[in-house]
């Protein structure tokens, strides 16, 4: 898609000395799951790719270079750029130490959906509102809606608005029907006991690998309560109460701060629907505190401020 453009950008930036490292994507064994790749020399630019499977959000890696010299260039899609905005708002990253190579994102594909539509899929190209998948099994033309990641179907921010350079023309956002709201509403329609049973079942699969926390741009504390030995907030024992504690606290710690990038859900090896937790909080934040687009980081986060006339439910 934009592989040539990203290689050229990396080469130029590293050669000119504008940046000392460049964070992009490189192909994995499976071309449908490219992984994050750090390069530091212009000749390594050949390794980079930028295609319709580059889902990983690279923003969080910027924390790794917090104490290292030099400017870091990073390839960010619209959603990833919100992750950077989060880190900037939290004062974890200085803007002048980052060079944002923005990708106006046409949407990233869900590798599982793609593989289901065309087993052995290797590549995809966009053609209008369709994607053409190619692979060992031949070629197949599918509607964007069938193969895009769920998050991309409702993307409101495909183009980073704070990029130092853009790889292509800005892309308009898709109208946001907020289908996630339907998932939250379905849970809300259950009885309390049904919800309890639902979450107990979901959380019981959790292996506590912490990938959801580690990938999250909003989970950027220098030390985390889950790692604390004393006091021990979270037992390593994976019983029901501890699983509930972990998921409750993880979600609440990013309440009003989640940028809706869906990375937690994407990396979860056990497919726990973490965004159903995040979306519930996002909706409540917007509704209770009369905010719009609460997933966009702002100067002061919704829970870091108050209004004397906030709803009074506590008497």
């Amino acid at each position: 898609m934009r592989s040539e453009a990203v290689r050229a950008a990396a080469r130029r930036l590293l050669e000119e000395g504008k940046v000392v490292r460049f964070l992009g994507h490189a192909p994995g064994f499976d071309p449908t799951s490219p992984f994050p790749q750090l390069i530091t020399r212009a000749e390594e630019a050949e390794r980079l790719v930028l295609d319709h499977f580059c889902a990983p959000n690279l923003a969080k890696y910027l924390l790794d270079y917090e104490t290292q010299e030099g400017v870091t260039a990073v390839v960010l899609k619209g959603c990833d750029a919100l992750g950077l905005a989060r880190l900037l708002a939290d004062h974890r990253v200085a803007r002048d130490r980052v060079w944002v190579v923005g990708l106006p994102c046409p949407g990233m594909l869900d590798r599982d959906k793609a593989a289901a539509l065309l087993p052995g899929v290797q590549e995809a190209r966009a053609e209008g509102d369709e994607f053409v998948l190619t692979g060992a099994g031949g070629e197949r033309r599918v509607a964007a809606g069938q193969v895009l990641l769920d998050r991309c179907l409702v993307c409101a921010v495909p183009t980073p608005d704070d990029a130092d350079e853009l790889l292509g023309e800005p892309v308009p956002g898709r109208p946001v029907p907020r289908e996630e709201d339907a998932a939250v509403a379905a849970l809300e329609a259950m009885t309390s006991a049904e919800r309890k049973a639902y979450w107990t079942e979901q959380f019981s699969r959790c292996i506590r690998c912490m990938a959801c926390r580690n990938v999250c741009p909003a989970c950027n504390c220098r030390s985390c309560c889950f790692d604390s030995e004393e006091p021990r907030w979270l037992s390593r024992v994976t019983d029901g109460p501890a699983q509930e504690m972990f998921h409750f606290v993880r979600a609440l710690h990013v309440a009003g701060r989640c940028v809706d990038c869906h990375e937690c859900e994407r990396v979860c090896p056990m497919d726990i629907p973490l965004m159903k937790l995040n979306h519930k909080l996002l909706q409540d934040v917007e509704e209770l505190f009369e905010l719009e687009r609460a997933f966009v980081p702002r100067e002061v986060e919704p829970l870091g401020i108050y209004r004397p006339d906030d709803p009074e439910e506590f008497a």
């Binding site: 309890k196 107990t200 998921h247 309440a255 409540d284 906030d310």
Partner: peptide, 15 residues
Amino acid sequence: RRRFLLVKRFLDYLG
């Protein structure tokens, strides 16, 4: 108050 408006609803959401 802000915080617990959310917490109250979230507790309920988790059953």
